[in-house]
Design a binder for these strands. Structure first.
Length: 504
RNA sequence: GGCCCCUUCGUCUAUCGGUUAGGACGGCAGAUUUUCAUUCUGUAAAGAGGGGUUCGAUUCCCCUAGGGGCUGCCA
C-alpha cells in the first residue's frame, strides 16, 4: 500500500498549481488502494495566515479530493499539523548534532549578510554557508565543547545546520526526470532548526515523511534543487533504505510563458487562479475563485489533470473516477505548461451541458442574489433550460438572461435604430393584440400569432424579428424570440411589446 | 553569475527510429438558425539551430540558443 501526502503551507489561498499537485497525489493513492494524507506545514510563523488551513480543507472538499488522514480527520500518525509536532523536530535535529552530522551555529542575520558580502568581494560566484567558510563562522565546529555548553546555557539563540561534506556526488532518482546528479560542493549547510525553535521545511518534511511512512513524494519542480539536501538528510538519519520515491512535477506557467503562475496572476490576467473565493472586508485583498467564477469542480479537476499529463488517447473528458483508472504517472510531462483560460472555459462548458436544474438551482439563486435580482418569482428552471446551451459557465446565465429577472431593460439603441422603420410600431402593436387573444400561450402559439401579422404587413422577417427580440430583451441577440416569450409569460410579453411599440 | 530542469502547430499535446507528424482549444471559412451563442463540416498552422550515430532521425548522443526553477533562520 502506498502512502502519498499533500503538504501545503497555510500562507494564504492555495493556487491551482498546488491543487494539481494534490490531485496527482490523490490519483496515485486511490488507484493503488493507498492513503492520501494532508499535512499542514506551518513552520514559518512570519508567513502564517489565519484561515488558510481551513481554506485548504474546504478547497480539497469542494474538488472531491478529501484526504484519508489529516488535521481534520486524524489518523494513525497524528498530529498532522507540524506546529503540533514541534518537540519531534528538535529531538531529531539534536540527534544529528550528536552524530556529528549537524552543528550549532550562532551567527546573526547581519553576520550572515556580511559573510555573503565578503565572499562576493572575493569573487566567489555562489556565496553560501558551506565547508569552505564554516571555519570562519560562529558555530560549534569551531568551538570547544565547553564553549558550546556555555553558549547553550547562556541561551544564546542558535540554529542547527546540516554539515554537508564536499566533493560527493549525490544522485537522486526522479521518477519523471530520471537520474539527476548534484555535486555536494555546490550545496550549502542548510539550516535545519531555526533560532525560533521551528524546523525548516527540509527537516520537518524529511522527518515527517519518514515517520508517516510516506512512500512517494510528488511535488513541484521548485523542490528539485533541494532534493539533494533531503537525500543527505535521509542518509544522516540512517533512513536511506526506506526513503520515498521522488517525482518532481513541471510547473504551471503564466499564460505568456514568463515564469510560474503566481497568486497575483489572477488579477493581472483576469481569470481565477484559486479554487475558492476568499472574501475580505478589504476589496483589495478579496480573492476570486473558480467557484465564484461559476466553474464546476469536476471541470477544474479535469482541466488541471491535463495540464502536465494526458492518457495517450483522444478522450479528454474524464470524471475523477475515470482519472483514477486512467492516470499513469509514467505519462507525466517534463516541461512546464502554460495556463490557458480559454481551454479551461471549454472544459467547463462540457460539464455545464451535463447539469440538471437540480444540480444548478441553489447556485443559480446565489449568483442571482449576488447580482441583486430577486429570482423567487421567476421561472428559473425554464430560464436554465433555455440558457444552458449558450454559456460556458453557470454564472453567465444570470447576466445573460437578466431580462427574465428584471423589467429594467437595457436597450441597445444603436442596433435597434438600424432596423427601425416608421411602420414597425403599429405592427408590433397588432402582434401584441393578436397574442393577447390567445387562449393557450406558448412559443408555438405566440410564434404563429406573430407570424400571421408579420406576413400581412410586408415587413421582412429579418427586420421585424430582431426588433421583437429587442422588445423583450433590450438586445438584438439571444435565444429564440418565442421561447423567450413563453418563459416570460403572456402578461410580460404583451406589456413589453406594447411598451416597445410606442418608440418613435 | 553558479547549479539544475525543460524545448513538436499561437496554446495544451500524440508519436516510445521508417507516419500524408494525429487530436483538442483558439483562429479562419461554410452549413444550420429570426439574431447571437450552441451544434456540424471543412481549413490554415509545428519538430529552435548546428553537429554526430544510423540504411533511415521529431524520436538516440553532443554543442549552441531559448525558456523555466533554485540560489533565505520561506515553503
Amino acid at each position: 500500500m502506498n502512502r502519498l501526502r499533500f503538504a501545503p503551507s497555510p500562507t494564504g489561498a492555495l493556487h491551482i498549481g498546488g491543487i494539481r499537485t494534490a490531485l496527482y497525489n490523490y490519483l496515485l493513492a486511490r488507484q493503488n488502494g493507498g492513503r492520501f494524507i494532508l499535512r499542514i506545514e506551518d513552520t514559518d510563523q512570519t508567513r502564517y495566515v489565519p484561515g488558510a488551513e481551513e481554506y485548504i480543507l474546504r478547497s480539497l472538499d469542494w474538488l472531491g479530493l478529501t484526504p484519508d488522514e489529516g488535521p481534520a480527520q486524524g489518523g494513525p500518525f497524528a498530529p498532522y499539523r507540524q506546529s503540533d509536532r514541534m518537540d519531534l523536530y528538535k529531538e531529531y535535529a539534536l540527534n544529528l548534532v550528536q552524530k556529528g552530522k549537524a552543528y550549532y551555529a550562532w551567527d546573526t542575520p547581519e553576520e550572515l549578510e556580511s559573510m555573503r558580502q565578503r565572499l562576493t568581494d572575493r569573487g566567489i560566484p555562489t556565496p553560501k554557508y558551506d565547508a569552505a567558510v564554516r571555519g570562519e563562522m560562529k558555530n560549534s565546529l569551531n568551538a570547544t565543547a565547553e564553549t558550546t555548553l556555555q553558549m547553550l546555557e547562556k541561551g544564546v539563540p542558535y540554529t542547527i545546520r546540516l554539515k554537508v561534506e564536499p566533493n560527493q556526488t549525490i544522485t537522486i532518482k526522479d521518477k519523471i526526470r530520471g537520474e539527476v546528479e548534484f555535486d555536494s560542493t555546490e550545496l550549502d549547510d542548510k539550516v535545519l532548526l531555526k533560532a525560533d525553535g521551528y524546523p525548516t521545511y527540509h527537516l520537518a518534511n524529511v522527518v515527517d515523511d519518514h515517520l508517516m511512512d510516506v512512500t512517494d513524494v510528488i511535488r513541484g519542480e521548485e523542490w528539485l534543487p533541494s532534493t539533494a539536501h533531503h537525500v543527505l538528510l535521509y542518509r544522516a538519519f540512517g533512513w536511506e533504505d526506506t526513503m520515498p520515491t521522488f517525482s518532481h512535477l513541471p510547473l504551471i506557467l503564466k499564460p505568456d510563458g514568463h515564469g510560474k503562475l503566481s497568486k497575483r496572476d489572477g488579477q493581472k490576467f483576469g481569470f481565477p487562479v484559486f479554487p475558492l473565493a476568499w472574501p475580505s472586508d478589504d476589496p483589495e485583498s478579496a480573492i476570486e475563485g473558480f467557484d465564484s467564477y461559476g466553474f464546476e469542480p469536476e471541470a477544474v479537476i479535469n482541466f488541471l489533470a491535463f495540464l502536465g499529463w494526458n492518457p495517450g488517447t483522444e478522450q479528454e473528458i474524464f470524471s475523477l473516477g475515470e482519472l483514477i483508472k486512467a492516470f499513469d504517472p509514467e505519462r507525466i510531462h517534463k516541461g512546464g505548461a502554460r495556463f490557458d483560460y480559454d481551454k479551461a472555459l471549454w472544459f467547463n462548458q462540457q460539464y455545464v451541458q451535463k447539469l440538471t436544474f437540480k444540480d444548478a438551482e441553489s447556485r443559480l439563486r446565489q449568483y442571482g442574489s449576488e447580482e441583486g435580482y430577486n429570482l423567487e418569482s421567476s421561472n428559473l428552471e425554464s430560464v436554465f433550460n433555455l440558457m444552458k446551451a449558450r454559456v460556458h459557465r453557470l454564472s453567465e446565465i444570470i447576466p445573460q438572461g437578466y431580462y427574465f429577472f428584471s423589467d429594467q431593460l437595457a436597450f441597445d439603441d444603436a442596433e435597434i435604430n438600424k432596423k427601425w422603420l416608421p411602420e414597425i410600431g403599429p405592427v408590433i402593436s397588432k402582434i401584441s393584440e393578436n397574442i393577447q387573444s390567445l387562449e393557450t400561450f406558448n412559443h408555438e402559439t405566440a410564434g404563429a400569432a406573430a407570424k400571421e401579422i408579420i406576413q400581412g404587413s410586408g415587413i421582412k422577417m429579418g427586420v421585424i424579428m430582431p426588433l421583437l427580440r429587442a422588445a423583450l430583451t433590450g438586445t438584438t441577440n439571444g435565444p429564440d424570440v418565442f421561447a423567450i416569450a413563453e418563459v416570460l409569460g403572456k402578461e410580460k410579453t404583451i406589456a413589453r411589446l406594447k411598451q416597445f411599440a410606442k418608440r418613435g
